[in-house]
Design a protein around this nucleic acid. Sequence first.
DNA 1: TCAGTTGTTTATAT
DNA 2: AATATAAACAACTG
Length: 259
Amino acid sequence: MPELPDVEGFRRTLARHAAGRRIERVHVRDPGVLRGVTAAKLTSRLQGHRFAQPGRRGKWVIARTDGPVILMHFGMTGSLRWTSVEAPAERFERLTFVTDGGELHYDDMRKLTGISLAANDDDADRYLSSLGPDALAVQTGELAGLLRGRRAAVKTVLMNQHVIAGLGNLLTDEILWRACISPRRPASSLTAQEARRLYARMRWVLRTTMLAGDVPARPSWLTGVRYRPAARCPRCRTSLASARIGGRTSLWCPRCQGD
DNA sequence: TCAGTTGTTTATAT
DNA sequence: AATATAAACAACTG
């Protein structure tokens, strides 16, 4: 699930419910999700602090408090839930933040990534320093500069969090399909016009999906047909092409996007 | 049983 | 040096 829109939804959950709440205790149900911090340290450092307004960069939630900063990543299967009352643990609940007004639950089946603790905002910036700019913060005309000189497939470059942060497999396929650009094209081969079109479609897809909190599986979207056997292009009904690009299963329309 | 998975990091290869 | 690819991580689903 979690790409930029999903993670933005998690950030909103924090902003709406957790901000201002005092952390009474942290229940580490599975230390396997902790990265660079022990359960004892996480609990003792956070206890008594209040959640502040959260941020997001790419697929990271920056859960600020009036003390340390919790950095949360969700891998392929993670999520964040708020319950206003004490709730029994879900099957894949790994961490629970118990506050004075409810509980914040970090669920993650696969535990591919996890949670780190930074001392403050500057420290958090250091943790995230290798990330490229957030995909939503990229301005008109900047995308072309990010792609310049990169010989890898444009899809691979868009998914590279060091270049631009927040786009994953579903979003890049959706954006490239809407921009009518093959995912296999070398990034540096895009014309200025194609880069502008890519940027416009990226903005549109991000804004739409961010409001929804996920990439909706509507039949008019590439994402809506991608798991159908013998899937066809929602625009022109051509059979979709499929290949592994950048290590991920990729779908595109050979007629609309070429290649 | 086996292949596949909406992500990232590390190691290895080019 | 920069870039590309594969493996590993974990726990499911079809």
